[in-house]
Amino acid sequence: MGWSDMRYESPKSTREAVALMAGAKGNAFLLAGGTDLLVRMRGEFIDPDLVVDIKRIPGFQEITRNASGFSIGAGVPCAKLGRNKTLVRAWPGVVEAAQLIGSDQIQGRCTIAGNLCNASPAADSVPALVAAKAKAVIVGPGGTRRTAVENIVTGPGKTSLGKGEIVKAIVLPDRPAKSGDAYLRFIPRSEMDIAVCSAGVSLTLGTGNVVKQARVALGAVAPTVVLVPEAARAIVGTRLDDAALKKLAAACEAACSPIDDKRGTVEYRTEVAGVLARRAATIAFERARRKR
C-alpha cells in the first residue's frame, strides 16, 4: 500500500458520482464524513483504489423541508442536525440519536447516511430512523429509488445497495402534530462509547392521549437493527399504562438475539433492551402529549 496508489474524486453531480462508482475497477468507496472510512483505511482493514467524495454534489450538504417531510443530504454532518431548530422540534429522538455519535469533533463530520451505510448493528442513529419510518433516497445506474431505511442493512458491514448505488438523502416523513420520538442507548460510561444495546420509539397520540400509531426499533441486539411490530402493538390503543409497558418490554426481549461479549452478556443485553424501550416509549409519549 503506497501513498500514491489511491485515486480521489469529488464529482459535482450525482450522475458523475454514480458513473465513477459503477465503472470502478478494484476497491471503490464513498466518502461522506469519513469518520468510519478513514479509520478503516488507517487500520488497513480496507485498501481503496478509489474514494469518491460526495460532499461537493449540490444538495448533499443541505437539510430541506417540504410537504412530505425533511430531507437530510448524505453529506450533512450531525452537528448541523442539532442546530436546525425545526428539525429538532419535529424529530427530537432522531436528532438526539445522531448527536450521540462520537465527540464534537466527530459530530463535525459524521453523517446519518454514513452511519446507516457503515452497517454496524450498534449504529446510534439507525434505530431512531427506523422508528421514524425514514426512507433512503438512492441514486444509481438505474435511476432514483426510495426504500425504507430498514431495507438497507443486511448484516454487519453489509448493505443491499447495488454497484454504483449511492444514498443521496435520508427522508423523515411528515407526521401528525401530536407525535413524539425518543432514542436511548446503554453504554458503560457517560460519553464516547458504542451502544451495548439501544431502543428508538416513535408514536402518535389520538383523542384522549391514546397511542394511535407506534414504531419500536432496537439496536445492537441482532446482526441488524430490528423493527419490533409486536412491541408497537403492545402499546397501540393504550395510554401507556404499566401493563402496556410490560408487554412492550416483553415483546422487545423476545425480539433480541444479541452476541455475548465482554461488553454485555446475552441475558444482560436482552433485559436492558426491554428497559430502554420502556423508557424511550415514556419519553416519546411525554413529548407527544405536550404538543398541540
Binding site: Y8, S10, L31, G34, T35, L38, V39, R42, V51, D53, K55, A79, D104, Q105, I106, Q107, G108, R109
Partner: peptide
C-alpha cells in the same frame, strides 16, 4: 470542529 486526521488533504 473536526479531527484533521480524519479529513483527507484533497478534501
Amino acid at each position: 470542529l473536526v479531527c484533521s486526521c480524519l479529513v483527507l488533504g484533497a478534501e
